[in-house]
Each structure stands twice: as C-alpha cells, then as structure tokens.
Design a protein around this nucleic acid. Structure first.
Length: 763
DNA sequence: GTAGGGTTAG
C-alpha cells in the first residue's frame, strides 16, 4: 500500500501554517496550546491509539522521517503524526527532536517547542537539546539548557559535557570553563576520555594551554585522539614549536599517529614555514601508505605553498583526484604570497567555486602586492557574487582603504559590518583604528579604540601611532602612559609611535627620556629605526650637531633612514655643509634614491647655490636616476581617483584645470605668493610657477572642490613629502574656500583649517 | 540510543 501524502500539497505544519487542516487559527499561541492538548481520538474505540501506532500508515510515517531533509518536510510529518496520534509515542517524538538538533537544517526554536511537549524529558532529550545548540554554535543557549537541566534535578553524564563544551567560544570558555571542569570532577566524569578531550579543547580555546597540558599529563591512558587534542591545542595557541615537540613525544610513546595527527603537524610546519620538517612528514606519510585523504592533501599543498615551494604545491594540486575549494584557495594564496599575483588571479578566475576564504585570499594578495585599488575591486566582485564576507575579509579590505586613504569606503565597511552583524573582533578593531588613522580621522579611530573591550599591543600601537601622525602628540603620549598601566607591554613598534609623537611636537627632552626608558624599563634594545627617530627628533628641533653625534655613536651601521632624517633636518634648517655629508652617506647606501638627490638640490636651491643645483641635476642625468613621480589620491563617492603632476588623463580634466586657474587667482588675491624655491628645473620664474602649479595634490584638491559639497572635508593621500609651496597654497585654500583639507604625505598628516595647518609648519 | 582529534585567511 502506498501512503497518500496529502500534506505535501496542503503545507501542514502545526507551528506555522495557516489554512490548516487541523488548526484554523492563525494565532501561533493558540496553535501551541492546541498542540499540547491530546489530538482528537480517531474513533470512539478506546484501543484506537495503540492500533494507530502500529498501523502500516504510521510505519510509513516513521520511514519517511528517516528520509526527511528539511524543516518543511519535518513539519509536515509532525502534523501528520499529530493527526494519526503517533506523536504520543515517546520514541517518535524523540526522533523529531533529534532531527531538529542534529540535522544541518535543524531549527532549535522548533526543537524547543517539541521538547516542551515531552512530559518527562530524560537525560537523552536534554543532551539532544544541548547538542543542538552546540551544533548551531550558540554556547549561551546551550549553557541555559544545561542550567535548566541541573535545576530540574538531572545530573550530567559522559555525553552532556562534551556536547556542551563543544559549543564554547573563547568568551564562554573564559567565563565558565573552570566551573564546568568542577562539574566534571563533582559528577565523577573526569576520567572519561571524551570529557577529558573536551576539557583540553576548552582550555586551549580560552588560552589556558598550560591547564590543558596538565590535564593531558595527568591522564593515565593517552590514546591518539588525546595526543591530537593536545597538539591541536598548541596549534590553536599558535605555539607551533610545542606542537612539533608533542608530536615527537607521541612517536616516542609509540602511539601511532593518525591522519589527523599529520594534518595538525603539517599545519604547524606551514605556520612555522619549516619546509624541511614538513617534507619529512610528507615522506613518512608516503611510507605509511595511508589512504588518500583530501584534507591531508590540502594541508600538504598549503604547507608547501606557505613555505614557498610552489612547484611541489602545484604538483600535488594537479595530482589530486578532486580539488575542492580549499585546495584551490591554497594554491591561489600560495602564488599570491610568492609574488605571482597575476598568476594567482588567473587561477582564481578559473575556480569552480569560491568561498569567503578564497575571496579573502585574493584580496589579501592584492594588498600584499600594494595593488590596493584592485583589492577593493575584488571586494566589490565578491559582493556581486553574493558571498558573505567575514572578519578576515574586512581586515584585508580595511587595510586597502587605509593605504588608499579611502575613508568613504572604510566608513561604508563599518556600516556594512553593523548591518550584517559581522563582529568587531580585535583584528577588525585594530584594522579599523589603523584605517581611520591613516585616513586622518582621529576622532573615529579613538571611538573604535574606546569601544574595544579587549586591546592588545597592536591596538595600543595603532592608536598611539595614529594620534602621533595626526598632530595629537600630547594625546598619543597620554595614551602611552595609560598603556603602561595595563598588562599590555609596549614593543619596539610602539616606541616608534611615541618617539615620532615627540618628533612631531618637537618634544626633545621627552623623546630623549623615552628613548632611554625603552632600554631601562622595558629591555627593548633600540634598533636602527629608533635611532632614525632620535636623529629626526634632534635634527628637526635644530640640534643638528647632536643628531650627527648620535649617528656617529650608534652601535650599528646607520642606514638610509637615519641619514635621510638628518638630510631632512638640514633642509629645514638650511645647513648646506651637513646636508652634503648626509647626502654623501645616503647615496653611498642607495645610489638610486631619487628623494636624496631631490632633497639635496632643494637645499642648494633654497640657499641659491645654483651651480650646485646644476651639478646634482647632472649627476641624476648621468646616473639615469628616475624621480619617483609625485602622486595624489582622492576618494569621491567610493571611487579612488589618482593624479600625477600635470596629469590630463582624468575625464574631468578640463574642468579641473579651469578650477585650478580660478583657485590660483583667488589665492593670490588672498595674499598667496608661489614659493618656487624648491623647484628643481633650471627655467624661468614663470615656468617654475607652472611646475608647482600642477603638483598632483593641487589637482586632487581642485577635483575635490568640484566634486564634493561645501563643508565636506577634502582628503588627499600623497606618496611623497609635500613641498613648501603646496603646503602654503593649501593653507590658503582652506581659508578662501572654508574647507577642511587633510593631506597625508609620506611622513605625517596635515590638517588644514582656516589658513592654518596642524603641523604648525613643522614637518 | 548520542561522543572525542582535523585542512584554507587577519
């Protein structure tokens, strides 16, 4: 007999359907109430229900439940069970509940409704509910059920804690881990291997890897799974050397590694970029004749790719029977990281399927290759492809925004994250701070900083650095002392932030003190970059002699940054003699450094040493040095526009140039005098004026004035240091057009407002 | 009658 399936057409669902055979009410509360009362008896026969439960019809219902795939089908079956009375069988009810708790498409709200219908739920039912919440990654809900279960007098068994602990995220583990461990002891479950492994996992999730290790050490019997759990814990804590040590311990203890062991160990090798160890493991796997396993193959590909052996990674990839999205992503990321970004892109375009990890890998590839605009384009394509970005994606995209100074896109990302409930974890938070800082929006950077409840040294360093380069030096130093009051220790990068705060504010004494506190208080040995900061600090403040002495007394060989800092200081203080010395050293180190020639010739030009200017220019010609072209970026309506000096490639060029002309007139009326002292060309005054007139930042600002509403700040990112003339011209623009203008140049930010600059002309 | 360890990215 074939069971008619009328419910397929009638959409019977006891909890959610309207126009229902059984329930005509559309009020869900009423439906639930009705459900809790026994269904109408099928006949007046008192034996009817027993009869029904074993009827062929019900038998068929049961077997349909086995094939059930979706909640919709489940609800139909459920309706039918109510109609036939089968629902009164505890076994069948439990099967419905099981589906909701274990199936991929299971619905825990529905599970709860079913659960509440069970007159006397037993431990199995409670475990199912906890397991269901775990599967849905809802630790809070799982804990609530567990608490309820205890309150109703149940005692957890071997299954309860593993199910519960599996849901635990870091926060849950930190908050409740110890208590649950205590429960395991109290209820005599701690010797169970499943419970122990769950606890090991939980402790390593909460960062208490040593407690996990203690549990591991105190276990009398350690099977391969327990070794794996412990190795996995070290991987999770990023202690990859420990992972490998433990693996060796496992081999010594003659426990046979499983495929999972090798996956874990190879993953550790990949992170350590230990090709030799990884290849050795590969050899062992080959010898062991382990069955082909796609996860193992993927991690092998990844290991070779991470270690830079793309030939081997590619060979393995091609040798795979079926490459899945992870295999593809591993080779795409591998090529991107080894500098073959275009090859990575070609493969990426050929991928049969792309998930958020693949898209993120491609975005990160472009970021690493400094091709930030392409990174944003890929992100756009990702949205177009309807793939949901996650925290990892956001970090890559925000980094691209930061580099481009694309505040608009960055802001958009933040709103997007809010709307799509992408959480601001510590990585995203740090990236947001960095983005806002690099886009010149310190207020927003501080806002993010203040709402982050966990802060690591990168968080502090990002905000300190952000404040330092944006003209908020006092605040930067203030936050640095706050940081010292926390458990987070500054590192060498943090010190670069505080030292540059001192440099920009001209706080020589504070800078000197911080420099020594770095060594005395935190045991951080200053590296060549710190000396560069110190030289910069002293030099800018006019202590050129002391700066030179610092260089001469450095414990290491000064690099180009150090000599560059001195040369920059000579430019400010017009010291030709020392400039020559600094330039000589700098060019010995980097004969191709075009900025050095520029600085030197600028200094000569400023001091009217035209013969010398000519000599430098000759040198540049003879040596075939190419000046890095000045380039300015400005973002308008989510699109980044790029300008180089004298650029006419922009579609709105005509308009931009006429705006520029208008600006020039207005500025001159307001008292602006072009400063051609840094013009490198040996030409007449008029041509010199033209040369600076066309500087890329001026083009970008003219474009900004045309294409944005009045009152909106104009933000420009420049790849080189701003020249004196642009700096003075922009001050006038900010006054004449009543606009806030923010320019990020190579070394810092300039916030122009009402004719003044935040750098106080000290840069 | 339910379980344990696993691959990709910041």
């Amino acid at each position: 007999m074939r069971l008619p399936i009328p419910w397929k057409k009638r959409r019977l669902s006891p909890f959610s359907c309207t126009n229902h055979l059984l329930f005509s009410s559309s009020n869900p509360t009423r439906l639930i109430t009705m459900l809790s009362s026994p269904p109408p008896p099928p006949s007046s026969n008192s034996l009817a229900s027993t009869h029904l439960q074993s009827s062929p019809q019900n038998h068929q219902l049961t077997s349909i439940l086995d094939q059930c795939k979706t909640m919709k089908e489940l609800k139909q079956i459920h309706s039918q069970m109510i109609r036939t009375g089968l629902i009164r069988s505890p076994l069948e009810r439990r099967r419905l509940l099981s589906f909701c708790c274990t199936h991929q498409s299971g619905d825990m709200d529905y599970a709860r409704l079913l659960f509440d219908e069970i007159p006397n739920p037993d431990l199995f039912d409670w475990n199912s509910m906890i397991r269901g919440h775990s599967n849905r990654h809802s630790p809070d809900a799982a804990v609530l059920v567990y608490v309820e279960m205890l309150a109703r007098g149940f005692v957890p068994d071997d299954y309860t804690l593993p199910f519960l602990l599996k849901a635990f995220t870091r926060d849950a583990a930190v908050g409740l881990g110890d208590e649950l461990h205590a429960h395991a002891l109290k209820f005599g479950l701690s010797s169970n291997a499943h419970v122990r492994n769950a606890l090991i996992r939980m402790y390593s999730t909460s960062g208490e890897i040593d407690t996990a290790r203690e549990l591991f050490e105190r276990s009398s019997k350690r099977d391969a799974v327990m070794w794996n759990a412990m190795i996995s814990g070290y991987n999770r804590s990023k202690q990859f050397v420990e992972s490998l040590k433990l693996f060796e311990g496992m081999v010594q203890a003659t426990v046979t590694p499983t495929p999972v062991t090798y996956i874990l160990v190879l993953s550790a090798c990949a992170r350590l970029k230990d090709l030799e160890y990884g290849a050795r493991i590969h050899g062992i796997i080959k010898e062991s004749r382990m069955l082909p396993n796609s996860k193992l193959e993927n991690v092998l590909i990844d290991m070779y790719a991470e270690c830079g052996d793309m030939d081997e990674a590619w060979r393995l990839f091609e040798g795979m029977k079926v490459q899945d999205v992870i295999s593809w992503t591993a080779v795409v990321a591998g090529f991107a990281n080894s500098g073959e970004i275009d090859r990575a892109r070609m493969l990426f375009d050929r991928m049969p399927e792309r998930d958020s990890v693949s898209w993120t890998a491609m975005i990160d590839g472009y970021v690493q290759a400094s091709r930030f605009k392409e990174a944003l384009e890929v992100f756009r394509a990702m949205q177009f492809a309807n793939v949901r970005p996650d925290e990892f994606t956001m970090v890559g995209v925000l980094t691209a925004c930061a580099q481009l100074g694309a505040l608009g896109v960055g802001e958009w990302i933040r709103v997007y994250m809010e709307r799509n409930k992408i959480k601001i974890d510590i990585f995203v938070g740090n990236a947001l701070i960095d983005m806002y800082s690099k886009c010149g929006s310190v207020e927003r950077a501080l806002e993010i900083f203040n709402l982050m409840h966990r802060r690591d040294k990168f968080t502090w360093t990002a905000i300190i650095m952000g404040l330092a380069v944006n003209g908020c030096e006092e605040e930067a130093l203030d936050l640095f002392s706050k940081m010292l009051g926390t458990s987070v220790r500054p590192d060498e990068i943090t010190y670069i932030g505080v030292l540059s705060a001192c440099t920009h504010a001209g706080l020589v004494e504070e800078g000197r003190e911080l420099f020594s506190s770095m060594i005395n208080m935190h045991g951080i040995m200053p590296n060549v970059t710190h000396y560069g900061c110190l030289v910069d600090l002293l030099g800018r403040a006019g202590h050129l002699r002391e700066a030179l002495e610092t260089i001469n007394n450095m414990p290491m060989k000064p690099n180009s940054t150090v000599w560059g800092a001195l040369l920059g200081a000579c430019r400010i203080h017009r010291d030709v003699e020392m400039a020559e010395l600094a330039a000589k050293h700098l060019l010995e180190l980097e004969p191709e450094n075009s900025a050095a020639y520029m600085l030197l010739s600028n200094i000569y030009a400023k001091c009217h040493k035209w013969d010398e200017v000519r000599k430098v220019r000759q040198m540049i010609m003879d040596r075939g040095i190419r000046k890095t072209p000045g380039c300015s970026l400005i973002e308008v309506n989510g699109e980044v526009h790029e300008f180089v000096a004298g650029d006419r490639s922009h579609p709105g060029s005509d308009e931009i140039y006429s705006k520029l002309e208008e600006m020039s007139k207005e500025l001159k009326c307001a008292g602006y005098v072009p400063d051609t002292s840094e013009v490198f060309l040996d030409v007449g005054e008029e041509e010199k004026e033209n040369a600076i007139y066309w500087h890329s930042e001026k083009l970008a600002i003219a474009f900004g004035l045309i294409s944005s509403q009045s009152g909106v700040a104009i933000r420009v990112v420049k790849n080189l240091r701003m020249c004196f003339d642009c700096h003075s011209a922009i001050k006038f623009v900010s006054q004449v057009y009543s606009r806030e203008i923010v320019v990020r140049d190579r070394t810092r930010f300039h916030h122009f407002r009402g004719g003044l600059c935040s750098c106080n002309d000290y840069w």
